[in-house]
Deep mutational scan, measured.
Amino acid sequence: MIINNLKLIREKKKISQSELAALLESSRQTINGIEKNKYNPSLQLALKIAYYLNTPLEDIFQWQ
């Protein structure tokens, strides 16, 4: 199971779900699903999230 700190990191950087979704060329619903652990992002999307949040991938997503 993958757990994530996306919501915590996103809020700390003062970025809304909609703003992050626009940067990622994704939907706000996708970001919401990832944050609620209802959806696991593809590797490509996970890497883009890490890039746009300027945060190491392993700080956002962790195996448990």
Rank of each mutant, 00 (worst) to 15 (best):
E25M: 12
A46Y: 04
Y51G: 06
M1K: 05
S18V: 12
P56G: 05
L43Q: 08
F61Y: 01
Q29G: 11
E58A: 12
L47H: 10
D59V: 08
L53W: 01
K36C: 14
E35K: 02
N4S: 02
I3T: 10
I3E: 07
Q44H: 12
G33L: 15
Y52L: 12
I9W: 07
E25H: 15
D59W: 07
L45N: 01
Q44F: 10
E25A: 12
S42F: 03
P41F: 04
I3Y: 08
Q29N: 12
N5M: 07
S27Q: 05
N40S: 14
P56W: 06
M1F: 08
L8S: 15
E35P: 02
E35F: 03
L6E: 06
E19N: 11
T30R: 08
N4W: 05
P56T: 04
K48H: 05
I15E: 00
K12D: 09
N54M: 10
L23N: 08
L23Q: 10
N32G: 08
E35I: 05
N32F: 05
P56Y: 05
K38H: 12
A22L: 12
L6T: 02
I3A: 08
T55W: 04
A21L: 04
K13G: 04
K14A: 09
K48P: 00
S18N: 12
I60K: 04
M1W: 06
A50E: 02
Y39C: 15
P41V: 10
K13E: 06
L43S: 06
N32T: 08
K14D: 09
E58T: 09
G33Q: 15
L8E: 15
L24V: 15
R10L: 07
R10V: 04
K7V: 06
N5C: 12
N5I: 06
I60S: 01
K38V: 13
A50T: 03
S26V: 15
R28C: 14
Y52A: 14
D59T: 08
S26W: 05
Q44G: 12
W63H: 02
P41H: 02
L43W: 11
S42D: 09
S26N: 07
L47S: 09
K7Y: 05
I60E: 01
A22G: 11
K36W: 07
I49Q: 00
I31W: 02
E11K: 11
M1H: 05
I3P: 02
S18R: 13
Y52S: 07
L53P: 00
K36Y: 07
L8D: 14
I49T: 00
S42E: 06
Q62V: 14
R10H: 02
K12R: 13
L53I: 02
K38C: 14
D59R: 08
M1P: 11
L47K: 12
L47V: 12
K14L: 09
I2N: 07
L23P: 00
S26A: 13
I31L: 07
Q29S: 13
K13Q: 13
S27W: 04
I34F: 02
L20F: 05
E58L: 09
I2E: 04
Q64H: 12
T55V: 12
L6S: 01
N54W: 05
S42Y: 04
E35G: 01
K7G: 06
Q62D: 04
I31D: 00
N37L: 07
N40W: 11
K13L: 13
L57K: 01
Q17W: 06
F61K: 01
I49Y: 00
W63I: 04
E35R: 00
E35Y: 05
A21Y: 01
S16I: 05
L53R: 00
M1R: 06
K12E: 13
T55Y: 05
E58W: 11
A50Q: 03
S16D: 04
S26I: 15
R10C: 11
A21E: 01
N32A: 15
Q29K: 13
N5W: 07
I60T: 01
E25Y: 10
G33V: 06
Q64L: 05
L57H: 02
S27F: 04
